[in-house]
Design a protein around this nucleic acid. Structure first.
Length: 279
DNA sequence: AGTGTATCCTGCAGGC
DNA sequence: TGCCTGCAGGATACAC
């Protein structure tokens, strides 16, 4: 579920709740979520203070003293839910996988129905190495259209696949890739290197505006996504193409199509996003 | 080297 | 009502 805007919304929620808390102990209810042994994870985070919350792509970082970080990837259905005291009744998470308990009595629960998410404690060095393997942040102040042009120029991948590759650009998932391609008038299966310079410029603009607008709306909830207050994101009402198979295109009334490749659905308007033969 | 496919897991919606 | 199939915001180990 969560792409960059959803992760950013959660980061902002955590900044107002758990920064300054110190970890008393951790409980791991599903070992497959943890990317290291429970003993190592516990040893690395216990009694450390949360100094800040950061985001890299779709990943959420709890920055601890000593340079340690807890890296959280939400997968498809992951949630990070802070509580000032143990939750009761309907407040209780349905699929808790990891609980971080603080000295104050507050706690943070990583809840994940499908358990595609992951949690891992890394040293500052390990984190830097990992981060360096990722592509640039599309909303970063130094990200420029030239970067997108040169990246696409050398790739024979379909452009939707290129956008989903976290090593090429960080944080873009299936919803916003589809939305940005629609707004730029580019068919999702166009070979990346055949996309024209003007089309890439349009894509650069649409990508940044879609992501920024989605952050303003608190992200997109299709089914599972919730922010740190347990509330849904409102961007679903603004989606132009994602999930609209069989419905009329907002621009031209043509029927929105769905095609599956790389095991993911892509949505497009055959009229507004024509497929041109690859060079 | 770079790409595409299958797989992990649970739950929900729709068809019969 | 119940059973079946397909589908879901992600990442990655493989095969080619």
């Amino acid at each position: 579920m969560p792409e960059l805007p959803e992760a950013e919304t959660i980061v902002r929620g955590l900044r107002t709740t758990i920064v300054g808390e110190s970890i008393r102990r951790v409980e791991v209810l599903h070992l497959d979520i943890l990317r290291q042994t429970k003993a190592i994870f516990s040893k690395r985070v216990r009694l450390r203070r949360i100094n800040g919350i950061e985001r890299r792509g779709k990943n959420i970082l709890l920055v601890l003293n000593g340079g340690w970080v807890i890296k959280v990837n939400l997968g498809m259905t992951g949630r990070l839910l802070p509580f000032s005291r143990p939750p009761r009744g309907t407040e209780r998470p349905s699929h808790p996988a990891v609980r971080i308990r603080f000295l104050s009595g507050a706690l943070l629960v990583f809840d994940d129905t499908r358990r595609f998410g992951s949690v891992e404690a890394l040293s500052g060095t390990e984190w830097n190495e990992w981060s360096n393997l990722m592509g640039p942040e599309p909303l970063g102040p130094t990200y420029q259209v030239s970067r997108l042009i040169s990246g696409l120029k050398s790739s024979s991948s379909p452009i939707r696949s290129w956008l989903l590759d976290q090593k090429r650009i960080a944080g873009v998932g299936n919803i916003y890739a589809n939305e940005a391609l629609y707004l730029a008038g580019i068919h999702p299966q166009r070979q990346s290197r055949t996309v024209t310079r003007n089309e890439v410029k349009a894509l650069y603009r649409s990508l940044r505006s879609v992501l920024a607008d989605a952050i303003k709306a608190g992200g997109t909830t299709i089914q599972d996504y919730r922010n740190t207050d347990g509330d849904k994101g409102e961007y679903a009402g603004q989606l132009s193409i994602y999930g609209r198979e069989g419905k009329p295109c907002y621009g031209c009334n043509s029927e929105v199509q769905r095609v599956v490749f790389s095991n993911r659905s892509a949505f497009y308007c055959p009229s507004c996003q024509p497929f041109r033969r690859n060079k």
